[in-house]
Structures are given as structure tokens and as C-alpha cells.
Design a protein around this nucleic acid. Sequence first.
DNA 1: CGGAATCCACAACGATACTG
DNA 2: CAGTATCGTTGTGGATTCCG
Lengths: 121, 121
Amino acid sequence: MTTRKENSTNNHNEMYWKSNCGLSVTLAMIGGRWKINILTYLLNYPKLRYSELKEKLIGISERVLSAKLKELENDALIEKIEYEGFPPKVEYILTEKGKSLKEILDLMDRWGDQVIEKQDE
Amino acid sequence: MTTRKENSTNNHNEMYWKSNCGLSVTLAMIGGRWKINILTYLLNYPKLRYSELKEKLIGISERVLSAKLKELENDALIEKIEYEGFPPKVEYILTEKGKSLKEILDLMDRWGDQVIEKQDE
DNA sequence: CGGAATCCACAACGATACTG
DNA sequence: CAGTATCGTTGTGGATTCCG
């Protein structure tokens, strides 16, 4: 039985944060090692298959990729499209909600880049 | 010996992310359970003592608070001011770099709030 | 008061093997 | 192809004690 619960958004946001609420919700949805990378790829490509994501996310295990995709799907940031037939084919796309993260991700990206630049001075 | 290395920015960003570089640097600096809360408090208060932070960050252990403050200090987001005399007194303030995160934190906060609102519809 | 040291728990991640 | 199952490893956090 074991009754694991590897999905249901993030494992760590049961009743996780109390204050700074919006902030915490956001970080819970995009935090962790892989999610922003997945989201960023899906911002740059209209759609990606499971195997394409696995290829791009160097070092990710299938176990974790599946888990993260499921979390993102549960949080309605991405959508999964399954095609009938053989061989199986699945594609992932961003939802509108997912796309609305672009502004934040862009800003975080620029901020980080600036930090890197100043390091080298 | 054990040779632990609990500081040195984050444990998990040695050579952690390769692509989406700026993004990853940012998330590495503010990610995790407590850092954004610490930063947010320091955005709202000009300075806070160790004990004041411990009081506000409900549920944090001293071990973790120390670690997170050190990480933030190593990343130059906050600054530690030690006063001589007895009893000991320490205050933490944001650096300019730390303050420059305000835009991102605000944006993340608003995004999260919107998500919460739409949930209730 | 402001931590550091120690010890422990558990959640996240990685590798591999297997399945519809 | 797109996953799941299982296992082992590592990272991260909590509780407690002790020290300058």
C-alpha cells in the first residue's frame, strides 16, 4: 500500500507557508530544481513530447520528469495531450496560466544575469 | 572530520543548472522554504535582530535560521551588523542587491494572489 | 543574546528495470 | 514511446544541547 502522494502539487506545500501568501504559492509552483526549466522550454517551444523534454533536461531521471510534469499539470500550468494509436504519443503545452508566468521568469532571468555579470568585475 | 559545508551559498548550486542560467541563479538564491520570507521581512523592516526574525518566522529552527542567514549573507543579499558590548546584539539589513529583488518578489506575490483568487471561483 | 555542534527524520533525487 | 515500480543515496529541515 504505502500510500505515497508524489503528486498533489508540491509535496512541501501542504500547509507550508502562512505569511507572504501569494509569494509562497508562486514559489511552491515553480520552485525546485526542474520546474522552471520545463516551463522555460515550453515557453520557447509550442509543444514538446515527453522524450523531447527528457532529451533537453540533461540529467533528469524519468521518475522525476514524470513527477514534475504531473505536478505542473495538477497546478494547471501545463496541459497533456495524448494521441491515440501506436506508437504512443504525448505532447505537453503551456496553459494560459502557465504562459502568464513569462513575465516573472523573464525578470528572474535578467536579475540573475546581472548578478553573474557583476561577479566577474 | 566530516567536512561538512553547510554554507557556501546554497548546497545545491555547485554546478547545478546549466541552461536558463540567470533564472537558475536567481532561484538558487531565493528558493527554498524560508529565504523569501526572510527577505520579505527585511523589505518591510529596515533592520531586524536575530531574535526578531526567529519570532516572525514561525516554526523555523535556529539551525536553519542561522544557515539561511549565512547563505543570504554569502550571496550578498543581506548584511550582518554586530554590535560590541553585552548582551550581544546583531542586526540584519538588506544590501542594495537584496533590495533589488523587490520587483521580482512583488510580481511573484501578485501572481500567486491571482491564482488563489481564481481558485475560489 | 546569538549562535554552533550534534543527532535524527524524512523528502527529493538518481539509476535501473519493467510495462501498456 | 511514455511512462511506473523499486531501491538506494543525498539534501534539507527540526529538536536539543552547549558555548562565547
